[in-house]
Structure formats: structure tokens, C-alpha cells
């Protein structure tokens, strides 16, 4: 019994690392640009396809193609911010929500047209490897993905705290006026924030590829998880998103283990709804400004 619980916790923790990359990306854009990116999951999906095709046609290992998917998505992010998101800033909720939402639909369906709905799996030399100890089982691909996800989160933290650009982002997240006063072009800060956020999504995609099939809708689970984690972990708060993501991974995994294979999401959504119900003042904005 205990073993089953520990095993479920380990499984959850490992996938929680991937959720964390997606959540941190969502919370970063939200914090800095004040936009909720509904399309974040689709960028995970794009990351997956990039790694899939690089592996299939050029034999590049998905863990190496990280070095390609991240910059590509960074550039896409800068373009997204510059050409689309920038135009709806300050226009209220409707355009902001539905722009990225429409983008999500668009990317998903273009992927469907280009790649069909088929699941594409990648078999790497370490896909079947696992560590065994004390009756527990830890798949190497997931472990590596988890470790790299944590390393990337750490790098992001260093970036935010020790570079000028990172400091400007944190300032923008707390007090937009202050960021302006620091003499930093807000457009550039926004572009870099969106770029970094998408690069994290791309990294999540690449890291998933050795053990998770790519498909046009593959990103949806991850973005839903990210939204829940971001709401639970207080909006715009990176540490909160990270911890909440790991917890959600564990909760989902326990749900699958003890309620049933298709109950992971129910458990997670129930967590979201219960938290919302019992947090007295809601999470996203009190009554007066």
C-alpha cells in the first residue's frame, strides 16, 4: 500500500516537472504582459513536433533538439507579442482572451491539417530504461525530463534576478510604472517575456517527446494543468506556479491510482473548484482597486 502511494507520488512529481515548465510560462506572460495565453499548450505541441521531426529525419535526440526548439519558440514568442498581442493590450478582457484563444484553435487545427490526428511516438535508446530500487520504479526519460525542467526553472530564476532584462521583467510584473521609469522599453520587455515563456513551452514539448506521443491536441492537457496550477499558486508568482504544478502532478497521479485511470483530471479540476470555493476573496482580484 505504502509502496503504491510512494510510486504514485513519484510518477506525479516527475510529470509535475513538465507541468511546471508550462505553468511558469503562463504565469510569466501573465505577470509581465498581463495576458493569459490560452495557446500555451499549442506551443508545447509545436515543441513536440519539432523534436519529433528532428529525431525522425535527422536522428537528433529530443534532449538535444531542446537547443533548437527553445530558440525557435523564443522567436515565435517575440513575433507573437510584437505582431498580435501588442495590438490588443489595454482593450479589455474580450479581445485579450479571445485572441490567444483563437490562436490556440488555429494552431491546433493547422497541426491537424498538416500532421493528421495520428499519435506520433518517438522511441529513444533510453525510452525503456528505468531505475529500480526498494520496489520502486523510475523511468529514466521522465527522470531526465524532470531534472532538466528543474534546471531550466533555476536558470530562469537566475535570469530574472541577475540580469537587467530580468529585473525589468520583475519590475514590470509588480509595478508597470516603475519598469517604465527604469528607462527600459516596455515593448522589448514584453517581447522577451513572451519569448522566454514560449521557449519554456517548447522545452516542455521536447522533454516530453521520449515518453509522450505528439498529436495536435497534445498540448491541451498541459495548458489546463498550467491554468489550474497558476490559479492555485497565486497569479504571476513563479515559485507558486512551480510548487502548485508539482502538487497537481502528484494529485493527478494519486487520482489515477486510487479513483480510476480516467479520473486524474477530475481530481485536478475538483481541486481547482474547491480552492476557488474556499478562498474567501477569490484569487484573481479583490473588490476594490
Amino acid at each position: 500500500m505504502l509502496e503504491t502511494v510512494v510510486q504514485a507520488v513519484i510518477n506525479g512529481l516527475l510529470i509535475g516537472g513538465i507541468y511546471a515548465l508550462v505553468s511558469i510560462g503562463v504565469t510569466l506572460i501573465f505577470g509581465v504582459v498581463k495576458i493569459v495565453n490560452f495557446a500555451q499548450g499549442e506551443f508545447v505541441m509545436i515543441g513536440m513536433y519539432i523534436s519529433y521531426f528532428l529525431a525522425t529525419y535527422f536522428g537528433i535526440d529530443p534532449l538535444l533538439s531542446l537547443a533548437i526548439s527553445m530558440p525557435v519558440l523564443f522567436v515565435i514568442g517575440v513575433g507573437l507579442q510584437h505582431f498580435l498581442i501588442r495590438r490588443v493590450l489595454g482593450l479589455g478582457d474580450m479581445p485579450q482572451i479571445f485572441l490567444t484563444f483563437a490562436l490556440s484553435l488555429l494552431l491546433m487545427n493547422v497541426a491537424l491539417l498538416l500532421f493528421t490526428a495520428n499519435y506520433r511516438t518517438l522511441h529513444t535508446s533510453y525510452s525503456d530504461l528505468a531505475l529500480h530500487f526498494a520496489g520502486l520504479y523510475v523511468p529514466v526519460a521522465k527522470l531526465v525530463a524532470f531534472i532538466l525542467a528543474m534546471v531550466l526553472s533555476g536558470i530562469l530564476r537566475v535570469f530574472l534576478h541577475s540580469t537587467d532584462m530580468g529585473k525589468a521583467m520583475r519590475a514590470a510584473a509588480q509595478k508597470p510604472e516603475v519598469a517604465m521609469l527604469m528607462g527600459i522599453n516596455p515593448d522589448r520587455v514584453f517581447c522577451v517575456a513572451t519569448g522566454v515563456s514560449l521557449a519554456l513551452a517548447g522545452a516542455a514539448g521536447s522533454l516530453l517527446m521520449p515518453f509522450y506521443p505528439a498529436s495536435p491536441t497534445a498540448g491541451q492537457v498541459f495548458v489546463l494543468m498550467a491554468f489550474v496550477a497558476v490559479v492555485l499558486g497565486t497569479l504571476g508568482n513563479i515559485k507558486g506556479a512551480l510548487i502548485a504544478s508539482l502538487m497537481m502532478g502528484i494529485a493527478e497521479s494519486l487520482g489515477i491510482q486510487f479513483v480510476g485511470a480516467d479520473s486524474g483530471l477530475i481530481v485536478v479540476f475538483a481541486m481547482l473548484l474547491l480552492t476557488l470555493a474556499f478562498r474567501p476573496n477569490g484569487v484573481a482580484g479583490g473588490s476594490a482597486r
Binding site: D93, L224, F227, S263, F269, L273, A277, V283, A284
Partner: peptide
């Protein structure tokens, strides 16, 4: 509504997605 209206803007939208998904998952069961 009691749950979702605690949230505003995009987070309201997300919470409503979650409720519809939960209902679907429940009916699957």
C-alpha cells in the same frame, strides 16, 4: 456561478471550462 464569479476576466473563463470538463468526465463515469 458561486465558484466561478469569484474570479474575473480570463480566470473566470478558465474556471467555466473546468466546470464543463468536470461534468463531462462525471457523465463518462
Amino acid at each position: 456561478g458561486a465558484v466561478c464569479f469569484r474570479l474575473r476576466g480570463p480566470y473566470f473563463a478558465i474556471a467555466t471550462i473546468a466546470t464543463a470538463q468536470v461534468l463531462m468526465l462525471l457523465f463518462l463515469k
